[in-house]
Simulated scan of single mutants.
Amino acid sequence: MDGLGNGQGNTPADGITRVGVVGCGQMGAGIAEVCARAGLDVRVAETTGEALELGRTRLVNSLGRAVERGKATAAQRDAALERLSFTTDLGEFADRDLVVEAVVENEQVKTEIFHVLDQVVTRPDAILASNTSAIPLVNLAVATSRPAQVLGVHFFNPAQVQRLVELVPALTTSEETVERAERLVTEVLGKHAIRAQDRSGFVVNGLLVPYLLSAVRMFEAGAASRDDIDRGMELGCAHPQGPLKLADLIGLDTVASIAESMYQEHKEPLYAPPPLLLRMVAAGHLGRKSGAGFYAYP
């Protein structure tokens, strides 16, 4: 099965049929789409009506592109849309079996959301998950009264296509919670799950981000041009995208945030975000999502 799910209404894992997604940006919309395509009832929350409409449009357009590319039928698209609902009130997540938080990489913001979810989600066995790339899961878990049911469920961008999901238990997370999440990810969503320790960067970003930062430093130092750095890794190492193109796709603010989190935890100089990266973020040059990064996106 591809990363879009099979759209046939797979058998629910451990009674997880109702999913909530907090945030409908690029990642939140992708996670919501994957879950809806897999036959789950999905409710998406955003902070404002305007943000919610942008997220709804993002989902509709993505499902439309899946039909255009032959990855889904029109019937599957329509069925997925029927399974999606939208709200600006987290109180409407009371009946959710699983809630995935997918907002900005800011620990304070995420902690506040988990505190609210703990109060409003009434199902005693509900799982509260975060799609964080680097923030310690234990810090989110202890903001709730159910730390055994909190873990990281880290999808990769674009979630509709990328097959990997990192499962990141905190020190407080029960094995039952991890196993339930793993069955959902693999048996219902059709993804491949790996387990990672609750350390900044987890597995993939722990390896990937230092590589991206090295490419930024090489460009910043004038050791090679932007195009030659990317072309070198694409043609010399068979990477599908060069590191600067990939950083633009991920979002330069996200790369900087992960790097800062890793540096704060490990104090390894190679993890510190380079000055050029920080200045690009300050200028609002965030990559594809802002229209400008190391490359221009009209």
Rank of each mutant, 00 (worst) to 15 (best):
L90K: 08
G190C: 00
L140K: 02
L167Y: 00
D228Y: 13
V204L: 14
L277E: 06
L117C: 07
M27T: 08
R146D: 07
T11S: 11
G293V: 07
V165N: 03
T144S: 07
Q108P: 00
F294W: 06
S200H: 05
K289M: 02
N61G: 13
R96V: 03
G30C: 11
A181H: 05
V121Q: 01
F86W: 15
V44R: 06
A29E: 04
A143Q: 10
D227V: 08
I258E: 08
L52G: 14
A141S: 09
T57C: 01
V178F: 10
V67R: 02
Y263D: 03
S261P: 00
D248E: 10
L164N: 12
G30A: 08
R83K: 04
G9V: 03
Q26M: 12
R56I: 09
G30E: 03
Y263K: 10
E166N: 07
G201M: 07
N106Y: 01
P298Y: 05
S130V: 10
I258A: 08
L252M: 10
G49K: 10
D230G: 09
Q76T: 07
K191E: 01
V168T: 11
D228W: 06
I194A: 04
N106L: 00
K191H: 02
V142C: 06
V99H: 05
V21I: 14
L98M: 06
E265G: 01
Q8N: 08
F156E: 00
Q241D: 05
G284L: 10
S62K: 00
T186F: 04
Y297T: 12
